[in-house]
Design a protein around this nucleic acid. Sequence first.
DNA 1: GCGCTGACAGATTTCAATATCTGTCAGACA
DNA 2: TGTCTGACAGATATTGAAATCTGTCAGCGC
Lengths: 197, 197
Amino acid sequence: MNEAVVLTPERILEATEDVLRRFGLAKATVVDVARALDVSHGSVYRHFPSKASLRDAVAKRWLDRANEPLCKLAASDGPAPERLEKWLRTMFAIKQKKVCDDPEMFATYLALAQEAREVVEAYKDKQVDLVAKILSDGVAQGVFEIENVKATARAVFDATVRYHHPAHAEEWAKPECPSRIDALISLLLKGLRACKQ
Amino acid sequence: MNEAVVLTPERILEATEDVLRRFGLAKATVVDVARALDVSHGSVYRHFPSKASLRDAVAKRWLDRANEPLCKLAASDGPAPERLEKWLRTMFAIKQKKVCDDPEMFATYLALAQEAREVVEAYKDKQVDLVAKILSDGVAQGVFEIENVKATARAVFDATVRYHHPAHAEEWAKPECPSRIDALISLLLKGLRACKQ
DNA sequence: GCGCTGACAGATTTCAATATCTGTCAGACA
DNA sequence: TGTCTGACAGATATTGAAATCTGTCAGCGC
């Protein structure tokens, strides 16, 4: 019965995510988090050295959770072009869903992304690695023709920035968006494909 | 000697741009503009119906001026791939130069872009038309293989958003930027090129 | 001893009073 | 007659005092 009462980083993160969702990034305070856990705010500082580190840890958890389906897709097998297309569309869909369902957490993520914090950088690097995995599978399958897989994966990530970077989130709801995504993906796939003679 | 004293939209725009540069978008007021012109602020409202319309008109002038070299490039002749590459690199360079040389005006433009105002939309449409011009030249030359020129031009514009949208301006100074631009451009050009057998 | 509390200093945010700004318009002036 | 002014109402921004927050730490209680 005691373990439910012990103050763990995990419980703090849970509570912080709740508080962020309830009050938003701008209003949430460490005191609020402590209050939600029924402890003093000093105790929170025993587990996280600063408010920023707490915020970052919550963001990391949130990003990792969002990232899970993408990891699975990258690790699966099948023809690389279809897999890449599916991967990109899934990433766009995840982001778009988040911006609708969890706007406060998304605003937190947006703030993080704008501060260009290392949590987000690490997350992006992970994404690029997943793209690179699919691309190298494609090279092995003979369907892609790529000189530098890592750089090309980065280029694919950069080229699609409009549909996954939170700074562009307002545009995602526009009616012309899907067809613009189609055009972009087909241009990128054409650029990756080996020219068969 | 009288014509120098007449209050014209042109003179107001000139003064507004000065005031914006001096005080920044956040601080600049219509009263400041009027003071710079030595007239009452009521007179300014005789030529522009609102502060917003004045701000937009200044932005339009500024954008049009920045756009001039790109129009020339699109209208010139020569092999389309080289021309497209040159066009893109010129656009990136113009933006990057602006962000260094004219930070207050750039902040104004950033604010405009974030408000997604129609001035900026019109400007982007113009840019896409220029890309489309180069692409259709490429098709005529037999070096590009494109189903829908307009949609593809939009896709090229979207794919390069990271290097021309002001929301990403902070990233432009990073040392890895040039090689990422190289990778992106070469991927896009490969996607546009006709596969010769 | 170990984990937690609560008081504290300095930084940051809030809030309400005050000042400034936007946009209008009746009337001065040429 | 047509252009410009300056006073005005309502909206917005600034300011500084008070409240709250962040991060620390000596000490309490288990």
